[in-house]
């Protein structure tokens, strides 16, 4: 018997792949910006620029939250239905 999920998966067979690629690309973007922030904070902290360190920390923290939130949307691995032949 076919249900909504099955017909969705059949209509868009690459959906999982696209979602996964999109999430990984966004995560890489977030991590890259965080590395940039960290590098800047390390360099500016030497000059006693406390304000810069705080701002980059807040930004980095928000990006970390966004990364964790994105992980919720990781698609589940596709499972073969029992008895279904490949």
């Amino acid at each position: 018997m076919s249900d909504f999920r099955t017909s969705q998966n059949e209509a868009h067979p690459n959906k999982t792949n696209t979602l996964m690629t999109g999430i990984i690309l966004m995560l890489i973007l977030f991590v890259t910006i965080q590395i940039w922030f960290l590098y800047g904070a390390l360099n500016n902290a030497l000059e006693d620029n406390f304000f810069f360190a705080v701002i980059t920390f807040i930004g980095s923290f928000l990006f970390a939250l966004a990364s964790f939130w994105l992980l919720r949307y990781l698609p589940e691995p596709l499972k073969d239905k029992p008895g279904k032949k490949k």
């Binding site: 890489i28 990006f63 992980l71």
Partner: peptide
């Protein structure tokens, strides 16, 4: 792992 790395950087 990328999520974990993001947390570590923060």
């Amino acid at each position: 792992f990328l999520g974990l790395l993001s947390g570590a950087l923060a």
